[in-house]
Every structure is written in C-alpha cells, then in structure tokens.
Amino acid sequence: MRAVRVTGYHQPLRLDEVPEPVVTGPHDVLVEVGGAGVCRTDLHILEGQWAAKSGVALPYTIGHENAGWVTAVGSAVTNVTEGDKVIMHPLVTCGLCRACRDGDDVHCETSRFPGIDTDGGYAEILKTSARSVVRLDDRLEPADVAALADAGLTAYHAVAKAARRLRAGDRVVMIGAGGLGHIGIQVMAALSPAEIIVVDRNPDAVKLAVGVGARHGVVASGGQVDEVLQLTGGHGAEVVIDFVGEGGSTAEGLRMTRRAGDYHVVGYGENIDVPTIDLISAEINIIGNLVGSYNDLAALMALAAQGRVTLHTAKYALDDFQQAIDDLTAGRVRGRAILVP
C-alpha cells in the first residue's frame, strides 16, 4: 500500500510502498483510511521537536487524525464490524491501568500514538484497536470529520473543561480561530451560555468565527488586549482559551484574564513567563490541556451528527501531501487540511 513516511528530520516527507498491516491480536481493527488530517503537530514532527519524546524509529508513517471504513477485525472485537464507518481516537490504550479504568484514557500508562510513536494514517490502511474506534452516524463521512479526531477532540476537551465554570453573563476569550479554534468556538456555543470573544490576526478567520458562534471578533493588529479589556468592562474574561500558545499570545492571554479567572493553554511553542506574585495576587489559574478522552470523542461526534459542530476543510489527494504541508506552513488553509487516499 502507499504511505507518506518520515525518512529524516528536516527532510521532505516521502510517498513509499509499504506492506499492509495485518490483524495479529484479538482486539485489532484495520481501517481503510477515508480522511487523514494534516496537523501543525506534523510540522513539529518534521522539525524534530518530537524525536526525543516519541522515541520513534525512522522511517515511519505520520498522521494522527484519522477516519475511514473497517476492513478487518480481531476475534474479540464486538463493537464494530467490517464496513462500519469509524473515527479513531488518536491513542491506542490498554483499558486496564488506573487511568483507563477512570475513563481518563488520555493518560493511559502504556498507550501508543499512531502517527507520533508508531505508524499513522497518511496511508491507505491503518491498524488500531477496538478501544479506539467510534462508529460514525450515517449523516457523517470520514473525510469530513477526520480532523475532529485530534484538532476537534483537543478543542472539545479544553472547551468542555472550561465551560464547567462558565455561566450566563460570563465572557470567554478564545485566541485563535484556525483549525482548532473554529471548532472550539462551535463547541463553546453548544455547551455554554457565556459570551464568546474571538481574537485572531487574520480578518477572514475572525469573520468565520463570528459566523460560527462568536459574539465579538477582534483582529489582532497590536491593540487586541485593550480591545478585549474594553469589551469586558476593563476586567478581562472569566476564561481565556489560547489555541495559539506562541508569538506572544501567552502574555497577552494572561493580560486578558480577569482576577480569579482561568487561562487555558492549548497551543504550544513558547514558554509562559509570569511573576509568581502576579499569579498569587490575582489568583489566576493556568491550566494545560491535552487531547480528549474516548468519551469526549463520542460526545463530539454526537454534536457533529446534530449539525452543531461543522469542520471546515480543504481536501487533498494523498499524492498531493506536500502541497497540503506547504499550504499549512504558509497559513493558506482555512479550517483543516485533509488527505484523502
């Protein structure tokens, strides 16, 4: 089968012919990939940022946002059958450790991460586990929802966590309305009565944000902090969710957070530099967010089936993987880029 492989860091990806995966264990599930999201994490992989953390041996196939059709299952699989449309939770988990038994499978002690530390979905067939597949509603198609497996799931996890403290009359600032942000805005509008303020440097992204649920859109052109403070009566927002995490957004996000507020970090790339006395005196909480759980993904798919979360996509053939990478790098993708084998 064809697969897009990392053959070396700081080197271009390569389309190769590789053996198809086979069922070897009772809980294995093979999926014909119908869509694989192209994520900024893939760019960080190529830059070598994940090399030490993942410990993966090169070459390998990337792609961690995947959906498609089941083609084969192991002897103990009962939740899906051949032909089912599925989206894959990005982790393959054990189900036996304390985290898994608590429903917190994101922190599984022995998890594998296809596309990060083992072969992923920039390919025609992906091997995963029965614990990782969520059946799709008949109204959903794999290529339309694939990036919800990570970008959408990460956004859902952060927003659902933040929404638990928000009530009518509160305000939430969301920094970044791109691939994650435009999903997070829709989820926030579905889960919370809070007034949504979105900040992005791209006027088209701000326009999209207002169209999918934001009350206010702020173009980041230098005065965005002051504009947000004006919109919040000078106090800042009860919650700030930063989908960028670099380029100065962390300092700005903290300045937009009101006293006793929560600043959620989702995007990454820079350090947070804040005097501890400022945290203590304002009692601000800084909260990290990883990808969501299997149950989070199932809930997100329910919102998608109801039409309350729609993924904006740009689709590319597998052969055009480099164009997708180049477009993402250059900021030409509105929403999420999807490879369709």
Rank of each mutant, 00 (worst) to 15 (best):
L208N: 05
D320R: 10
D326V: 01
I286W: 01
A251N: 11
L148N: 06
Q49C: 00
Y156I: 03
L13D: 05
M174T: 04
H44S: 14
T313V: 14
K127A: 15
L30F: 07
A324R: 01
A330G: 11
L15R: 08
I62M: 12
V274C: 12
T41H: 03
D84A: 05
G115S: 05
V212T: 08
S54G: 10
K85D: 02
S75D: 15
I87M: 01
R112D: 14
T7I: 15
N271P: 10
I338L: 09
R98C: 12
K127R: 13
V172G: 05
A205S: 13
D320Y: 06
Q322W: 12
D42T: 07
T7S: 14
G288I: 00
R5S: 07
D319L: 13
R112F: 15
A76K: 04
D262G: 10
A149F: 10
I185N: 05
I185K: 00
A162Y: 09
Q186P: 09
T329W: 06
R308L: 15
R336P: 07
Q322Y: 11
L136I: 01
L297Y: 04
C94K: 10
E252C: 07
V309H: 05
Q323T: 15
M256T: 05
T232F: 10
A302S: 14
L339R: 11
K207I: 02
V38H: 07
A52F: 14
P203Y: 07
A282Q: 09
T81S: 15
I183Q: 06
Y263R: 06
E17I: 10
G261P: 01
G248M: 03
V159T: 11
D16L: 04
G247P: 03
A72D: 13
A205K: 12
G121C: 03
M88N: 09
G120D: 08
R258K: 08
D262W: 03
I284M: 05
L140K: 11
R98N: 15
V4I: 11
T257K: 00
A260L: 14
G181V: 00
